[in-house]
Design a protein around this nucleic acid. Structure first.
Lengths: 211, 211
DNA sequence: TAGATTGTTAATCGATTAACAATC
DNA sequence: TAGATTGTTAATCGATTAACAATC
């Protein structure tokens, strides 16, 4: 079983390597990537090894080959289609992220229950009424469901998505979704990061008070 | 040094305990929280111990005391003021999150370079021109800077924030910010999660192909 | 060749889980 | 009392880092 922590580092390397390609650099090494990202060089070697790419001693890795290997490993070449549910500001923000397509995902349509949002087109993505969701998702080959609704309805939406045959859910609410084991769920819980920020800032204040 | 991983779990318990309070439940236990969150019960005991709260054998922990202890530990009681830079959709989405105030942070003003956004008021937060940023931040007691700009300008904004005396940065771009050691940075990099989702979905497809 | 880098194995570190005495 | 839960110490697990032979 490959560890998620390794998979999470690969997009980081990827962006730096992409920049190197743009700058016309042909070869890079674990040492260089380590300096750029702060990740230990042995870690980087192991992560690259996951992709199956073999490097050249004394020269490092070919930038073009690295890009290809990482994109292939992360399955970023064949793009999954996604439906987004909840076309509020957060939903709209995601619809505006063009570069998701470079990361293996394309948002095809958005859905909302709010009549004021229906018909709105953002970045070529139309907001449709929620009651068309199940019908459309079965007809099209949609793999990913994105949930940007209020937390109270997240589980309900997830259930609808699973019933419609979705394979992966990107959940932007703090609700912990209950889904079958074969469904991949990736959650972004903003409050957890905010806890760290708030807690660490509190410690700084307390320290200076003690001086 | 307290581990970030523990701090990240506390907001999770907090929400479940808050719900218990709402439902009139007076006592809870590590076993119950474990069932709700999926976190191991010993882990939960250790995390609660961090807050300094002592439980009652055979009964568990008092819900009200737990809420108080976690909020205090995460420093969620004294609310830090924040300035947000980048009033696009993502920035607006964050401005609309009222519940951040319950998590120790309040967004006071937003800033943007786009003249069309200036003057816009969202959820009582006004969007001001970026050139007023440094002046205002020095006059008010602002601890947190939120970056929801395009990634290319994130470092520049971070530099301005640090120069203006900000103590913590919540970074929503994938740019890896370079800041002095005493600045707390919490980053939300959407692409890293998308890598996991895409990669795991690819494996599912491959597995079914092999059947 | 000399030296920088790879890839891998071993050691360390930290986080998670198991075990268990103490307690009400 | 009996039994469920706490809090803590010990054991395990996994991830990170160090060490080093192989290579061009």
């Amino acid at each position: 079983m490959v560890r998620n922590s390794a998979i999470r580092r690969l997009p980081l390397y990827y962006r730096h390597i992409l920049k190197m390609q743009k700058d016309g650099i042909q070869y890079t090494s674990a040492r260089i990537l380590s300096e750029l990202t702060g990740v230990h060089k042995t870690q980087i070697r192991k992560d690259i090894a996951l992709t199956g790419l073999v490097g050249v001693p004394r020269r490092g890795h070919c930038v073009n080959a690295l890009i290809k290997a990482i994109a292939e490993y992360l399955n970023w070449n064949d793009i999954s289609s996604a439906f987004l549910v909840g076309a509020g500001n957060l939903g709209k923000a995601l619809m505006n992220f063009d570069s998701f397509e470079k990361s293996g995902m394309k948002i095809i349509s958005a859905f909302d229950v709010n009549v004021h949002e229906i018909g709105v087109v953002i970045n070529d993505i139309e907001v449709l009424p929620m009651d068309k969701f199940s019908d459309l998702i079965k007809r099209m080959h949609i793999n990913i469901g994105i949930i940007t609704t209020p937390p109270e309805v997240a589980q309900e939406i997830a259930d609808i998505m699973v019933a419609a045959g979705i394979k992966g859910i990107w959940n932007f609410t703090y609700t912990q979704l209950e889904v079958p084991d074969d469904i991949v769920v990736e959650s972004v819980d903003l409050y957890r990061g905010l806890g760290v920020l708030s807690m660490r800032l509190g410690n700084i204040d307390n320290l200076s008070d003690e001086e």
